[in-house]
Amino acid sequence: MNLYSFVLMALMGVPGSGAKVQISWTGDVTAGFSTTFTCSSSCSPNCIYTWLLKDRTVKGSTLTWTPDGRENTVDLQCTVLNPETGGFSSTISTVEIKNPLSVQVSPPNTVPFLKQALDLVCHQDKSGDLQEPSNPIWFKDGQKVTLRNNMQLLQNNLTLHFDTPLPSDAGFYQCETSLRQTRVLSLGYLLSFDLWNVTISGPDTVFLDRLYQFTCLSSCILNDDCTVKWHFKSGFPIGTYFSVHRNVLKWTPSRPGTFQNFTCIAENAAAGRSAQTTKMVEVKGTPLSGSQTGQLGGLPTMILSLGLLMLFHS
């Protein structure tokens, strides 16, 4: 396997601390599989290593983590503190996650039509040593699927069958099952009877100092011909963290009492077609107090905020 060192270098802390920090790992990061990340630095012995992953902190120079498939990227931060000098340095790596589980239409490349029988299959990539998934749970738009008269579960729940799909059956479908003793949520399938339907998943209300993810979903499969662009008609999102990777947008808001509009445009230049949608998000809440900040795991406030600002301005 190849050694991945997907690293954003950032020298921070007390001037002259001089410790460079790097995060590295071996092979792909895959949902259902554990990966060990190593944080290395030029800091002198007895330095303290602290990881920040999804608002959870872990001490030590290594971190072992098994993704559950709910994200396709995560931001992993390692901070090194020299207790003798009080100096610290930090770096953030954006980790891309492969998901061997997906929802696919069957037969492949079937174009969904109203009132024409359709199968959605909980499919697992055959690479690796995973066993066949069994008895998955199905979700539509984030809620557990409730079977109706025109729906059936077949093949140990691996297939969600529609006798005669209705307009109300349109939505974003996912399946969840156990892979290597870890519950994994699959990549999703947007069932739409309009091939150029576009929607944005994510909350309508957000709170300060929390990281949120918004995903632009379209039946237009992303490739060289089909692209996704984000527009901000009401102004650029204000926050301590912001990133865009293809059709995924991540944002940590910092201004309460405001509204943010996200517009996603899916375009196929070769076909001369495009579609767009806009989602309005309300920002609520008050800034974290000192005691509340401690609940994020005990990192010094300056380390956390500097790390986010360094990534935001990179």
Rank of each mutant, 00 (worst) to 15 (best):
I238A: 13
R180P: 02
G87E: 02
W251P: 05
S201K: 00
S201R: 02
S186G: 07
Q77Y: 05
Q124D: 03
G13P: 01
Q77T: 13
C226G: 13
T79A: 15
V244T: 15
M151C: 01
M310T: 07
T50G: 01
F193W: 08
S168V: 15
I137T: 08
K279M: 11
T30L: 09
L179M: 09
L147N: 06
M302N: 08
K20C: 09
L211F: 00
I23N: 06
P112F: 06
S102Y: 03
L311K: 15
T94M: 09
E132R: 02
S24L: 11
L53V: 09
Q143R: 12
S127A: 14
N46C: 10
Q116I: 11
F259S: 15
T85K: 01
V244D: 12
G86L: 01
T38V: 14
T286F: 14
R148V: 00
G171E: 02
L179C: 09
N46M: 10
N82C: 04
L249Y: 05
K98L: 12
R70H: 03
P67T: 03
E176Q: 15
P45S: 14
L308A: 11
T278E: 09
Q292E: 13
G18K: 14
H245A: 13
L114D: 08
Q124N: 11
C78H: 02
D224I: 05
M12L: 15
T146N: 11
G86P: 00
Q124G: 14
S24V: 15
R56L: 15
T263Q: 14
F214H: 04
R273M: 05
L11E: 10
L52V: 02
M9H: 08
T36H: 03
T64I: 00
V111Q: 12
S234K: 00
W138T: 04
